[in-house]
């Protein structure tokens, strides 16, 4: 992006940019998260959405409980194999472009549940963009993850169809 300062071209009246940069700028500042909370991490995630930590400062407070209106999936909580197919299905229903945050030890690698029922990391079936460790992570850690997603969108972006 650049500000046009040439008086012949209208002075400071307009910006020049590409469609892609503009779209990614918009996406970055208005992430709509789909909260996929299955355990205690979800409580911490709610804390992040609420007024004390206030994720709306980063444009990402509009938690959408319909995957069709969301572009950021925050998987927070233990995912069992029985739940995994549901999780994948919800992810598939989200429109492109979309991003995934794995919140907490359970989603990153199974956490303490080395058992027959629990998925040892949701990257077994989902493309994860940012991993947040912790049991549960501090709200600041989730905010950092959202900011990392923003950085990723800014740097790599997503194609504009």
């Amino acid at each position: 992006m650049g500000v046009n300062a040439d008086p012949l071209l209208g002075g400071e009246g307009f910006l020049t940019t590409t469609i892609e940069t503009l779209a990614n700028w918009g996406r970055k500042n208005s992430l709509w998260p789909m909260p996929f909370g299955t355990a205690c991490c979800a409580i911490e995630m709610m804390g992040v959405f609420a007024s004390r930590y206030d994720l709306s400062r980063f444009g990402a407070e509009v938690a959408r409980f319909s995957p069709r209106q969301a572009d950021l999936m925050i998987v927070s909580g233990t995912i069992t194999y029985k739940m995994a197919s549901v999780c994948r299905r919800i992810y598939d229903q989200m429109p492109e472009p979309k991003w995934v945050i794995a919140m907490g030890s359970c989603t990153c690698g199974g956490g303490p549940f080395d058992s027959y029922a629990v998925v040892q990391g949701i990257d077994e079936f989902l493309p994860v963009d940012v991993y947040v460790g912790g049991c549960p992570p501090r709200p600041e850690a989730l905010i950092d993850a959202v900011m990392k997603i923003q950085k990723k969108i800014e740097m790599k972006g997503a194609p504009v169809v």
Binding site: T80, Y81, K82, A84, S85, D114, S115, Y116, A117, Q120, F125
Partner: peptide, 10 residues
Amino acid sequence: RNREASKESF
């Protein structure tokens, strides 16, 4: 720790 059957169902 045997997750094979769970994976199959998944």
